[in-house]
Design a protein around this nucleic acid. Structure first.
Ligand SMILES: [Zn+2]
Ligand SMILES: [Zn+2]
Ligand SMILES: [Zn+2]
Ligand SMILES: [Zn+2]
Lengths: 128, 128
DNA sequence: ACGAAAACGAAAATGATTGTCAAAACACCC
DNA sequence: GGGTGTTTTGACAATCATTTTCGTTTTCGT
């Protein structure tokens, strides 16, 4: 139950980033700063953290899983920069309602939703 | 430019299905019904069809790409069954507006969004 | 029918993710 | 401190969807 050292290292690496990062990416960063952590362990840590709801995960266009340690643990969505992958947490009560209604209207049960907004953030837009 | 025979076969296989299908899946189905089509060609056809906006694509939880020939070519979203992957096309003007506003409010440009609703459809719910 | 260009498909390459398994780190007890 | 059963770790192999390669076959215009 206690927070493992390795797992803590992965979490810190995530905390240090404002955007979504991939497992491979985090692994490279950790090794670069001297850690002897293994790739397998990074995957395991991310799996555990996302299972426990401590971090959010989403898929990039090419199917790669990317993770983020968000400030809020409550349900929210993201506005993600396509260039630097920085993300802003956003909420949308209207969207929550809409999704639930749609599901119910068509007789679906156990309804959930996946909502992400993509774009190019201010700094990256200017730089282009 | 003309619609290739192979590409047409892939499209028909998709038309015949109410839900989202993976490339591997479509390949197996086509071979099963006697076609000599190659896996590479299925991937190429799906790529071309989705590039031209003729079919929709999304990623399953485990990152696999799945495709669907939707009735409407205009912008819409999906309510997808987790069990049989059948999908219903849905629209949400409020969501469109919300996503655009969020992007603008945070200084993002070229804003797009990805919105899907998941659940278990009526038939599959009953069967459980 | 003839040659260039486009489409095909088999097989190899890629790349993220997962499975295996023995070694290392821990925890608890004597 | 040493013994010992449990958990964590990491090197390496195995998966598996997707992409590349690269000859071969078709299609097309002439
Ligand atoms: Zn978040
Ligand atoms: Zn939501
Ligand atoms: Zn659709
Ligand atoms: Zn939309």
């Amino acid at each position: 139950m206690s927070t493992t050292t390795r797992r803590e290292a992965v979490r810190q690496a995530l905390d240090a980033s404002a955007g979504f990062r991939s497992a491979q990416d985090l692994y490279a960063a950790l090794r670069a700063e001297g850690s002897k952590i293994g790739l397998t362990t990074v995957y395991r840590a991310l799996q555990a953290l996302s299972d426990s709801g401590e971090i959010d995960v989403l898929r990039t266009d090419d199917g790669e899983a990317v993770y983020r340690a968000c400030g809020s643990e409550s349900h929210h969505h993201h506005l993600v920069c396509r260039v630097c992958s920085t993300a802003v947490e956003v909420e949308g009560p209207a969207v929550e309602r809409w999704a639930a209604e749609m599901g119910e209207a068509h007789g679906f049960t156990g309804v959930t939703h996946s909502v992400e907004i993509f774009g190019t953030c201010g700094p990256c837009s200017r730089r282009a």
